[in-house]
Simulated assay, not measured.
Amino acid sequence: MTAKWSVTKIVGDHLRTLVDDRKTRKPIRVRDILAFYGLPLLVLVLIIIPEFNFSWLAGVPGYRQLAAFRVNGLEGILSGISIYTALLFGLLVQIFQIKSRYLDNGEYSSDAMDLNDALEANVSYAVLTGIIATAYLALVLATTVKDNPAGRIPSGIIAFLVVHLLVTLFMILKRARSVYSHL
Rank of each mutant, 00 (worst) to 15 (best):
R64E: 15
I98N: 04
D32H: 14
T129N: 11
F69A: 05
I132C: 02
R101P: 00
V19G: 03
N148H: 15
A176I: 02
G80S: 13
V179S: 04
A118G: 10
F69L: 14
V167Q: 05
T143D: 07
S181H: 12
P40W: 09
M1A: 14
G80C: 02
L15C: 02
H164A: 15
L161H: 08
S6Y: 03
D104W: 09
L41P: 00
F89C: 02
Y108F: 15
A121H: 02
D21Q: 08
A133Q: 06
I132Y: 10
S100R: 13
L78C: 03
T144I: 08
L165F: 10
A3N: 10
G80I: 05
I28D: 06
H182N: 12
A142P: 03
H164T: 03
E75R: 12
I47S: 01
A142M: 09
F170A: 11
Q94G: 01
D20W: 11
V43G: 04
P61W: 04
I157N: 00
T17E: 00
G156E: 05
F54W: 14
N53Q: 15
I131G: 09
I158M: 06
I81L: 05
A121Y: 04
T85E: 10
H182K: 15
S6F: 04
A35H: 08
V167P: 00
L128E: 05
A138Q: 09
D111P: 00
R177A: 10
D21F: 10
S155Y: 06
F89R: 13
R22W: 05
V43F: 11
M171K: 14
P61Y: 04
T2R: 12
L91G: 10
D147G: 03
D32Y: 14
D114C: 01
P50Y: 04
V163R: 06
L128H: 12
T8R: 10
V93T: 12
T144G: 08
E75N: 09
L141I: 04
D13V: 05
D21V: 09
L78S: 10
I132V: 15
S124F: 02
I158E: 07
N116E: 05
D114L: 09
I157L: 12
L34P: 01
V93R: 08
N72Q: 13
M113Y: 10
F36L: 08
L66H: 01
D104V: 11
R152D: 02
A133S: 14
L87M: 10
E107M: 14
P50M: 05
V145M: 08
P154Y: 03
V127H: 03
W5N: 15
S155W: 04
S124R: 12
S55M: 05
F54N: 07
L34I: 15
P27V: 10
A138D: 06
D114E: 13
S155E: 02
F69N: 00
Y37S: 05
L44C: 11
F89L: 14
L137G: 04
D20C: 06
G38A: 09
V127T: 05
S181M: 07
L139P: 01
G73L: 07
D21K: 09
D21M: 08
L115T: 06
A58T: 13
V45R: 00
L42K: 01
W56N: 03
F96A: 11
A86Q: 10
I83W: 01
D13I: 03
R101S: 13
H182V: 02
S124Y: 03
A35T: 11
L173H: 13
I48N: 00
V127W: 03
N72F: 14
A142K: 09
V162M: 13
P154W: 02
L169V: 12
